[in-house]
């Protein structure tokens, strides 16, 4: 097993870091670790945030000391058993990549040296695993983007990005489920409401599901948008 580190995250949390790369194998360890630790909740462990390749553990320092917590985590790390694969559920998300929905397309074109059409084909031509939800309710962190599309984040984040915007941040891609500040390069937009309080399950998908982007023209975008507004659009889902 490679080096797993326990990083200090202020006075009431630590981050167990399994690796500094994105891979399904690393993420499986994260899931297994979070599951094992969740069973020990109540002994001063309050809440977990599992991510691509780490688990941040919030604890109550009055109930478990920093030293004791690290011992507990070390023990779980040493006895970690990685479980098998999950079944695949794919959400088809329509995205309009046209000019008015893609303010940073030119930056990505310049940085990658790719044409607009190549960027669209590379971005929409595959299934992305949802490694984690975070940053905002329902914000899906997707793994598996074609490396040729990698573009650094904005050096100063925007103060407002509209819900539905699809972006690239470093070697990752994702969608903003709500209006929010953010630093990703925006290359398209979906009319689908990823987070909707009106739905029984306000978040459309879960970590472990897959997303596939489907390019649509502006006209189709607007039609879908109208249905979403009325609350009668149903995302196409495939299971395998």
């Amino acid at each position: 097993m490679e080096e797993i580190s326990i990083l200090t995250a202020g006075d009431s949390a630590v981050t167990v870091e399994f690796d500094r790369k994105i891979s399904p194998e690393v993420n499986q360890k994260v899931t297994a670790f979070a599951k094992a630790l969740a069973e020990k909740k109540g002994k001063g462990v309050l809440e977990l945030i599992p991510t691509f390749r780490s688990v941040t553990v919030f604890y109550d320092p009055f109930r478990i000391s920093y030293g004791k917590l690290c011992e507990l985590l070390q023990g779980i790390i040493e006895n970690l058993e990685v479980t098998g694969e999950q079944k695949k559920r794919i959400f088809y998300i329509p995205v309009c990549y046209e000019e008015s929905y893609a303010p940073d397309m030119h930056t990505v074109m310049e940085h990658t040296g790719l044409s607009r059409q190549s960027i669209i084909e590379l971005h929409s031509g595959r299934d992305y695993l949802i490694y984690m939800l975070g940053f905002l309710p329902g914000f899906p962190y997707l793994g598996g983007m074609d490396e040729r599309l990698a573009t650094p984040r904005l050096s100063t984040p925007r103060t407002r990005i509209e819900a539905g915007s699809v972006g690239i941040g470093g070697s990752q891609t994702g969608i903003y489920p709500l209006d929010s500040p953010g630093g990703w390069q925006l290359i398209g937009k979906t009319p689908v409401r990823l987070y909707d309080q009106r739905r029984e399950d306000p978040i459309l998908y879960r970590a472990g599901d897959y997303i596939r982007f489907v390019p649509v023209k502006e006209k189709e975008y607007q039609e879908i948008d109208m249905h979403c507004r009325a609350g009668n659009y149903h995302c196409q889902i495939a299971e395998s």
């Binding site: 949390a13 981050t15 870091e17 991510t51 780490s54 941040t56 984040r153 941040g169 470093g170």
Partner: peptide, 10 residues
């Protein structure tokens, strides 16, 4: 730029 991970208050 890091692979996004969890934040804590502060």
């Amino acid at each position: 730029d890091i692979i996004s991970d969890a934040t804590v208050p502060g």
